[in-house]
Simulated assay, not measured.
Amino acid sequence: MRSLIFLTIFSLLALTFPVAMASDPSPVQDFCVGVNTPADGVFVNGKFCKDPKLATVDDFFFTGLDRQRIATNAVGTNVTPVFSDNLPGLNTLGIAFARVDYALNGLIPPHTHPRASEFLIVQEGTLFAGFVSSDQDGNRLFSKILNKGDLIVFPVGLIHFHVNVGQCPAVAFTAFNSQNPGLITVSKSVFGSNPRINPNVLAKAFQLDPTIVMSLQTKF
């Protein structure tokens, strides 16, 4: 009788508090090499699957990550992504990768990945990296100076950043536990939205003069 009551309560709790999955679903086949046009009619994770009989090792191979990229954008970084768009064999595997080249003082601005946690490992140079916990946790800053061979993890969804604080260009590699981690750059999203957020709203949120907000909006 007690067992029956326990099972009844457990079932009701399961219905009341559904379990949420926070990672990409596991594939139910060996692989699904992503293509943008129908192959065999199977559409998975935003791409069609190539006929498995036509898959080759080149679908799972990427080269050139040893080559230095020139960081010429406004924040002094250059990101080389390795996602399913340029490595089709990654489709449905739930992982992604990138190389980051930093000029002197180069920065990856505060941003979040809504669907993935991230590893960052320094290949060359010295970085200052960190993340901020949620409002519920008091918005604590977790930060560290990273040298060659050092690694830091950024939890899924939290705002994080990394900047070159060394005396020479730097290189790092990042990995994600999602094939499409998503990217929300805080400054660009807030001040560069389309259409723009009312400056008075942002002025009150950031405790700034509206003219300063409008000036920031013109930069994005």
Rank of each mutant, 00 (worst) to 15 (best):
F6C: 06
Q123R: 00
G46Y: 12
G94N: 09
I108R: 04
S215Y: 02
S11E: 07
I152N: 01
G130A: 05
F6T: 11
V186C: 04
F142E: 07
N164T: 09
F60A: 02
N194G: 00
D209G: 03
L13D: 05
V57D: 13
A205S: 15
P81M: 07
E124T: 11
S193G: 13
A175Q: 06
S3V: 13
E124F: 08
I108Y: 03
V171Q: 02
R67H: 10
L202R: 06
F48T: 08
C168F: 14
L7S: 05
L120E: 13
D59H: 09
N147V: 14
M1W: 03
D58C: 11
C32I: 12
R69V: 07
N73W: 04
V165R: 03
T80I: 14
K148W: 00
I197D: 01
Q167Y: 07
V190T: 06
T37C: 04
M214G: 01
F142L: 01
T126D: 05
V33W: 07
S193K: 02
K219E: 13
Q136P: 00
V201Q: 05
N164C: 00
A203W: 00
L158G: 05
L93M: 14
T63R: 11
F161S: 01
T112M: 12
M214H: 04
R99W: 02
F31T: 02
V186N: 01
N45T: 12
P109A: 08
G89R: 04
P38R: 00
L158N: 04
N45G: 09
L141S: 01
L15E: 01
L15F: 09
S189I: 03
H162Y: 10
L107G: 03
P195L: 06
A55S: 14
S84E: 13
T92Y: 08
A71N: 01
S3E: 15
I5Q: 10
K47P: 02
A74S: 13
T80D: 14
I212C: 07
K148A: 14
F176I: 09
P52K: 03
A74D: 13
P199S: 12
G89Y: 10
I108H: 05
L4V: 15
F83L: 15
F43K: 02
S143W: 08
P195T: 07
Q68A: 15
T63S: 15
A98H: 04
L208M: 13
T16K: 11
M214E: 15
S178P: 01
A14I: 11
G46A: 14
D40C: 10
V19A: 11
L12S: 13
M214T: 15
V132A: 03
G149V: 08
N147Y: 14
Q68W: 13
T185D: 05
K188F: 10
P114E: 07
L104N: 03
P52I: 04
F142P: 00
D40T: 12
L107S: 09
P169Q: 02
A55R: 03
K204F: 04
C168E: 14
G34C: 12
L90V: 12
Q207V: 15
D150N: 12
